[in-house]
Design a protein around this nucleic acid. Structure first.
Length: 163
DNA sequence: GCCAACGTTGGC
DNA sequence: GCCAACGTTGGC
C-alpha cells in the first residue's frame, strides 16, 4: 500500500464537507493534471491512505486522514457540459480524466504547513517544495509515520491498517 | 494582490 | 520538436 497527500480548497470541499457526506465518502473529481491523474489511475489502490490537506486558505495544512475507498474510474464531470470541469475533448469511449473515491478515516488537529516545514525529517516532502502545485503527491512511509505518530500521536495501528 | 513556479497551448 | 506566451496554483 502507498501513502499520499491530497489537496482541497476548503472553500470548495473541506474536511467537514467530507465528514458530512454520505458514508463519509466522496469521489475525488475535478483533477485536471496528468501527473495527478496518473497517480489515481495507475498507482492508487483501495486501502491506500492519504492526508487530507487544506490549500489556498488562511491556515494551509493537514486536517485529516482518508482512505482510498474505490479504484479509479472515468471522472463523470468531464462529460458534463454544465460542469466547470467539462472537457470537450473527452468522450466516454476515450476518457481523459479519472477519479478515485476517498473515505474519511478521521479528522486530525491542524498540522499547519508552517509546522511541517520546521521538521528536518520532512524536508523532502513534495508538498514542501517551493512552487509545488500538484494536487496529489506521494508521501514516503517514513514521512507518514513521522506525521501520524510523532506529530499526531496516533498509534501505528490507527495510522495504517497494515504494518 | 503579488509573484514564483510550472504545466499547457499553439505557431512555426 | 522547440519555445514563447499564457494560465493556474497557492503561499504569503
Amino acid at each position: 500500500m502507498r501513502y499520499w497527500l491530497m489537496k482541497s480548497e476548503p472553500g470548495e470541499f473541506s474536511i467537514d464537507d467530507l465528514e458530512a457526506a454520505p458514508r463519509r465518502t466522496t469521489p475525488w473529481t475535478g483533477v485536471r493534471n496528468y501527473q495527478a491523474r496518473n497517480f489515481m489511475r495507475d498507482l492508487m489502490q483501495v486501502g491506500d491512505r492519504a492526508f487530507f490537506y487544506h490549500s489556498s486558505c488562511p491556515e494551509p495544512g493537514i486536517v485529516g486522514i482518508v482512505e482510498v475507498a474505490a479504484p479509479a474510474y472515468p471522472d463523470p464531470t468531464q462529460f458534463d457540459a454544465g460542469s466547470p470541469y467539462y472537457d470537450p475533448k473527452a468522450t466516454p469511449e476515450n476518457p481523459r480524466w479519472f477519479n478515485v473515491e476517498v473515505k474519511l478515516v478521521r479528522k486530525t488537529r491542524l498540522v499547519a504547513l508552517k509546522e511541517l516545514k520546521q521538521h528536518p525529517e520532512l524536508a523532502s516532502m513534495q508538498v514542501l517544495r517551493p512552487g509545488n502545485r500538484l494536487s496529489i503527491t506521494p508521501v514516503d512511509p517514513r514521512e507518514w509515520k513521522f506525521i501520524t505518530q510523532r506529530l499526531l500521536g496516533l498509534s501505528g495501528e490507527v495510522a495504517s491498517p497494515c504494518p
